[in-house]
């Protein structure tokens, strides 16, 4: 095949030969396409789509990993909506949604502060971004330590005159522990959004700021009339992305509290039901429902993207 093509490319360019040449190029393209696609598509099928279709299948059965399974129709789906623990878990997503609004606002604030001529920009950016690179288990231990009664956070607060007796158990008190986990989540992921926003801000036309300065605009006016409109699209897209992120929040409660004390988010519960209780059917139904929600949110995102690009 290859030798054939080489021989042809070197020969006289008669009409017929050129045609043959192109024909063989097409063939070669096909061979390359097939060989290059084989592995990625195989892996995609094996580890993404096959599991997905199996999950849909499992969601109609009452089953464990091993043993008989029983067809139960839509019962698992009905269970998801009627069981108290599933519903409570879904409600917890609201905490994380609120958290992601805070997270994006902070990210935008720091991004703006760091694009002006700020001294030590690289240091500030690096320090705020670094938590994103710390592994999940390490984050878990760091914050278990941080929030233990009488340890880091409490000592800091005591420096400011707080009384240890009055301070709550940060991870056990069900009034606040979900907010505490959301705060850790903001700590961990804010840098990612910040770096993204810094990138977006870098593409804003700097002559507009100069013009505004001549016209006597203050910092807030510059932000509101120039910066914000220029990066509105990326902000809105990140907000929508944050919604699906909140629905699937998993890592912080999983590593810090293990889902105890009322901090079990939807995925922590799914994981628990699947691997500890072996309610494979119910866990599958939960995953399918969440996936539908995420697809819905993404559909909204795509629509928003189209709308925003038109303007």
């Amino acid at each position: 095949m290859t030798a054939n093509m080489k021989a042809l490319s070197g020969t006289e360019k008669s009409q017929n030969r050129i045609l043959k040449f192109w024909n063989s190029m097409r063939n070669q393209q096909m061979i390359v396409t097939v060989t290059f696609l084989l592995i990625p598509l195989g892996l995609l099928f094996l580890f993404t789509y096959l599991p997905f279709f199996k999950m849909v299948e499992f969601s109609f059965y009452d089953m464990k990993y091993i043993g008989e399974r029983k067809w139960v129709g839509l019962q698992n789906y009905i269970d998801v909506f009627t069981r108290k623990d599933c519903f409570d878990a879904l409600k917890l997503s609201l905490y994380y949604m609120a958290g992601s609004v805070v997270q994006l606002s902070l990210a935008l604030l720091f991004a703006v502060l760091l694009t002006e001529n700020t001294k030590c920009r690289n240091f500030f950016r690096g320090a705020l971004y670094f938590p994103c690179l710390v592994g999940g288990i390490a984050v878990g231990f760091i914050f278990k330590f941080f929030f233990t009664h009488g340890f880091i956070l409490d000592s800091i607060l005591m420096c400011f005159g707080a009384d240890l007796e009055m301070l709550p158990f940060w991870l056990k008190d069900t009034n606040i522990n979900n907010w505490v986990l959301v705060a850790v989540s903001v700590w961990r992921y804010m840098g990612q959004n910040m770096v993204l926003f810094i990138g977006a801000l870098a593409s804003v036309d700097s002559t507009m700021y100069e013009a505004a300065e001549i016209d006597g605009a203050n910092a807030w006016q510059k932000f509101w009339y120039i910066t914000f409109p220029s990066i509105r699209t990326i902000i809105i897209l990140n907000l929508i992305l944050a919604v699906s992120g909140s629905l699937s929040s998993f890592e912080m409660p999983y590593v810090i509290t293990g889902g105890g004390f009322g901090t079990s988010t939807y995925f922590v519960l799914t994981d628990h039901l699947a691997h500890t209780n072996q309610k494979v059917g119910l866990a599958s139904a939960m995953s399918v429902i969440l996936l539908m929600l995420i697809l819905l949110v993404t559909g909204v995102q795509k629509l928003a993207e189209k709308k925003l690009n038109q303007h």
């Binding site: 599991p51 199996k54 999950m55 499992f58 699937s248 799914t270 599958s284 969440l290 996936l291």
Partner: peptide, 8 residues
């Protein structure tokens, strides 16, 4: 989400 499909 990767976690969702780990069951299967």
């Amino acid at each position: 989400p990767g976690i969702a499909s780990q069951v299967t």
